[in-house]
C-alpha cells in the first residue's frame, strides 16, 4: 500500500530532499512557503515591485538549478535568501545606481556627514503599534541610498558580518563600517520623526 505524501505537512528539509531528486511538487511547496520572504528581500533592496518580482523568480529558478549544492549548513530559506541577495546586488550593479546616489553620500565619502548629523536616539519603548513601526521603517529605508540601505539590510536583517558584507558589495570593510554608521544615523533621525530640513 502506498500513502500519498502530504507536502504541506512536510518540513523544509524533507521537501528539499525530494526536490533534489527532481520532485517539482516539493519545490512548488517550498516556493509557496517562502515566496513572500524572498520577494520582500528583493523588494527591500530594489524598491521596485516589478523588478523584485522578476528577480525573486529568477532566484527560485537558480535555486532549483543549484539545489544539489544545498548541504543544509544553513536553513533552506537562509540559503535561498542569499541567492536572492546576490542577484539583487548584480542587478543594482548593472543599473549603476551608485551614480544616482545623492550628494549626502558624497559628503559621507569625504567623512563630513557624521559630524553634521546630530546624535538622535530613537526611543525603542515608544508606544508604536508594530505595524506602524514597520511602516515607518519601510519609509525610512526608502529614503536611504541603495548602498546605505543594502548595508543596513545585510547587517541588521540578514545578520551578516562586516567582512561578509564587504565581500558581497565589493568594497572594503572600512567602507562598510562607514556606510553602516551613516545608514544608522540617518534611520535614527528619520525614525525619530525629524524632517530632513531639521538636520541642517
Amino acid at each position: 500500500m502506498t500513502t500519498k505524501l502530504d507536502y504541506q505537512a512536510e518540513p523544509d528539509v524533507k521537501l528539499v530532499q525530494l526536490a533534489q531528486k527532481g520532485d517539482m511538487v516539493a519545490f512548488e511547496e517550498l516556493v509557496a512557503r517562502h515566496r513572500d520572504k524572498i520577494y520582500a528581500r528583493a523588494f527591500s533592496m530594489l524598491r521596485n515591485e516589478e523588478e523584485a518580482t522578476d528577480l525573486s523568480q529568477e532566484a527560485w529558478v537558480k535555486a532549483w538549478q543549484r539545489l544539489v549544492q544545498f548541504q543544509g549548513d544553513a536553513s533552506f530559506v537562509t540559503w535561498m535568501t542569499r541567492i536572492c541577495i546576490n542577484l539583487c546586488l548584480d542587478q543594482l550593479r548593472k543599473q549603476k545606481r551608485v551614480r544616482t546616489d545623492s550628494i549626502e553620500q558624497m559628503e559621507e565619502e569625504v567623512g563630513g556627514v557624521e559630524r553634521q548629523m546630530p546624535i538622535i536616539t530613537p526611543n525603542p519603548t515608544e508606544r508604536l503599534e508594530r505595524g506602524e513601526l514597520r511602516n515607518r521603517i519601510d519609509k525610512a529605508l526608502a529614503q536611504l541610498s541603495y548602498e546605505h540601505r543594502t548595508v543596513l539590510i545585510l547587517h541588521e536583517f540578514e545578520e551578516l558580518e562586516y567582512k561578509e558584507i564587504a565581500k558581497r558589495m565589493e568594497c572594503s570593510i572600512g567602507t562598510v563600517m562607514s556606510r553602516l554608521f551613516y545608514a544608522r544615523r540617518k534611520m535614527a533621525v528619520l525614525l525619530a520623526g525629524l524632517k530632513r530640513e531639521e538636520l541642517r
Partner: peptide
C-alpha cells in the same frame, strides 16, 4: 546609546511586504 537604540528598533521589525501577484 543612539546606535544601540536604532539597532534595537530595527531588530525584528523588518517591513513586511506581500507578493503583488
Amino acid at each position: 546609546k543612539s546606535l544601540k537604540a536604532t539597532r534595537q528598533l530595527l531588530e525584528g521589525n523588518e517591513p513586511e511586504v506581500k507578493l503583488p501577484e
